[in-house]
């Protein structure tokens, strides 16, 4: 099906030749994102096989069992044996899916033994980040260039804006190879903190503190955005995570602390 649609689309729109044909979930760089990806692919392949079987039988029937070919209709209309088979087999397939899904879910929800804790608070329309152990806190909102270009009829070519809508003034800096517990809450309405390459999302809800954990295996810059409708600027509260090696992270932390002392003394 995918292939047919693909061929169809590429013939329909020859003009937009392959610029960005990203069609799948990113595998990501955390144990949770990789587990989600593997599960996604497993279930996807199972559904593809089911689809091919069901549509294959249908297609065969559509081609061969036609009145125009003089095919005489059979009269059967039930078969307990067949009906039991196609109730039991899907059930077994589902059990086969549920086992790895359950294992992954238990792993994802286990936030114990984390080394640092990042508290994320959603606001209309920015994020606040607090490093609980190190007493660092700052706000992070959409960068100036994107913010100008996104206005109605801004006459700025958004394709020329760097990381349009996916860039912030203050990125979150986090260490690699560290189990990080993320606490989520919100001050006004619902938000959801989501960076696809770091794994799934979780809602930030006023009055609640939700938990998730990540462990970034590769240094890099990872981008995401708010995923729960939070009002008119919902599309404009990006998330940028800068993952650096531990030593660099500790340097960054001490600079932040020095800055804070400096601002206090002023």
């Amino acid at each position: 099906m995918k292939i047919i649609i693909f061929v169809l689309l590429s013939t329909l729109m020859p003009a937009v030749v392959v610029a960005d044909w990203e069609t799948n979930m990113p595998r990501g760089v955390t144990p949770t994102s990789i587990a989600a990806y593997d599960l996604h692919m497993l279930i996807f392949y199972i559904t593809v096989v089911i689809g091919i079987l069901v549509f294959g039988v249908m297609l065969y029937s559509i081609i061969h069992h036609r009145k125009s070919k003089g095919y005489q209709a059979a009269t059967f209309h039930e078969s307990t044996k067949v009906e039991i088979i196609w109730t039991v087999i899907p059930f077994l397939i589902l059990i086969g899916m549920a086992i790895p899904a359950t294992k992954t879910l238990i792993m994802m929800e286990d936030t114990r033994n984390s080394e640092i804790t990042l508290k994320v608070t959603g606001y209309q329309w920015m994020w606040k980040y607090e490093y609980l152990e190190d007493d660092i806190a700052f706000f992070s909102k959409i960068d100036k260039d994107s913010n100008k270009a996104r206005r109605l009829n801004s006459s700025i070519d958004v394709n020329k804006v760097e990381h349009y809508l996916r860039n912030v003034d203050n990125p979150v800096v986090l260490p690699t190879n560290t189990k990080i517990r993320i606490l989520l809450t919100a001050s006004d309405v619902l938000h959801a903190w989501w960076v696809p390459e770091l794994g799934g999302k979780k809602d930030a809800i006023p009055g609640y503190i939700n938990e998730m954990w990540i462990d970034i295996k590769e240094p890099g810059i990872y981008r995401g955005q708010c995923a729960e409708l939070c009002g008119k600027d919902h599309a404009f509260m990006p998330i940028v995570v800068k993952a650096v090696p531990k030593s660099e992270y500790h340097k960054w932390v001490s600079i932040q602390k020095d800055n804070r002392i400096a601002t206090k003394e002023n």
Binding site: M58, H65, Y71, L94
Partner: peptide, 29 residues
């Protein structure tokens, strides 16, 4: 809620299979 949701696939599957079986060896137009 995951298990309960997956369970819905069973009766829904039965419906789809029954439709395909209705078409099977019919005299279709």
């Amino acid at each position: 809620f995951m298990f309960a949701t997956m369970l819905i696939a069973v009766p829904t599957g039965v419906k789809v299979f029954n439709w395909v079986a209705t078409m099977w060896r019919g005299s279709m137009t």
